[in-house]
Design a protein around this nucleic acid. Sequence first.
DNA 1: GTCTATAATCAGATAGAC
DNA 2: GTCTATCTGATTATAGAC
Lengths: 207, 207
Amino acid sequence: MKSSNVLKVSFKEQMLQAREEAIIRTVNLLLAEKGFEAMTVDEVAASVGIAKASLYKHFPSKEDLAAAAMVSVMRRAQDFIATLPGDAAPVDNLRAVVRWTMWVKLAGEMPSLPSQNSKLRAALVGNRDYMDGLLEVSDVLGAWIEAAQADGSISAQIPAIAILYTVYARACDPVLEFLKMGGQHSNEQIMDLVMRTCFDGLNARPL
Amino acid sequence: MKSSNVLKVSFKEQMLQAREEAIIRTVNLLLAEKGFEAMTVDEVAASVGIAKASLYKHFPSKEDLAAAAMVSVMRRAQDFIATLPGDAAPVDNLRAVVRWTMWVKLAGEMPSLPSQNSKLRAALVGNRDYMDGLLEVSDVLGAWIEAAQADGSISAQIPAIAILYTVYARACDPVLEFLKMGGQHSNEQIMDLVMRTCFDGLNARPL
DNA sequence: GTCTATAATCAGATAGAC
DNA sequence: GTCTATCTGATTATAGAC
């Protein structure tokens, strides 16, 4: 009886967790495709294949849905960062993160949230998992940036915070979508182009 | 009688045009501040000081309001471009346009529209003034880009279209707002920073 | 927890008098 | 053209049965 109960509960919990992951995957894709405001809760429920009321048992509001998606990508970012070699040149790790960010965006898996929505901001700031992840990622990137500035590979004339923002901004760079829409370049080519404009700038390199 | 009527009509028309300009100014500011979805028509009407129904006599839909605002900034862009010296180095004119774009954004006068909204896209594409302005600006910028690539001041390894998109993208660069929110830099410093990352890139310059 | 059905609200758009 | 009052539809969220 005892062990049976334990197993039953565990199984149920696994089911629940799997469903929540399915929800988050769907939200992630919809947020990347249409953005927060255009994504409706009905759509999410229909896409997952459950009733809307059931969705609200898992996540108390639309904002929490979006926050969960952000936590998910933040975890993916942390996982990716964890795979990077600790003894590599800091600028190489930075470049790898920028490239990874663009890859996620081009894959249609980067949620795009309005930066002005106050309810959404509140949900994000109030989400411990998200804030912890954001702070940890920022810490790691910040350390790499300062190290790269110290070793002379990244410009020391730009404040580290501006460089950090510039890295993050690749997650919502419209140049990526525009080039993709143009259909003239592969995702790899697009990433190479934006990597170049980002790190080398638009100016011609001196000979 | 005749001349009186003529004057009256002309006066009325001036009033109407002035009101439309007031509407567009308001829409412009609201679009810059909160974006298209968060801006409500009630808000616009209240801010202008007229009834919502009156607003709809001037513009048949919310999308047309946004389109009118875009036409307005496009005209401002054309006016600015017209002031640039035709005999200057192409790259200098490009830099001036990028700087002007960031200045408008930092002044809170750059409307931010969702690139995914299809109804909005339809309204923009269907607006002759907007499309004509966009095409003309793109023509001028495109010519400068190719000339700058030819004279060796702008990288010829990046397709001109990618450079054009990168220029346009400064109109919605979140790095600007983030740095502004930080409160550590003046608008001039922010523009200088982003100009540097945009044209020189993040890499340190070779000595 | 999941469902159907429904509430509650909000926002874009319009009717009709003046 | 401008107004007040209203319609209409969409959307977030919840009640209550199972």
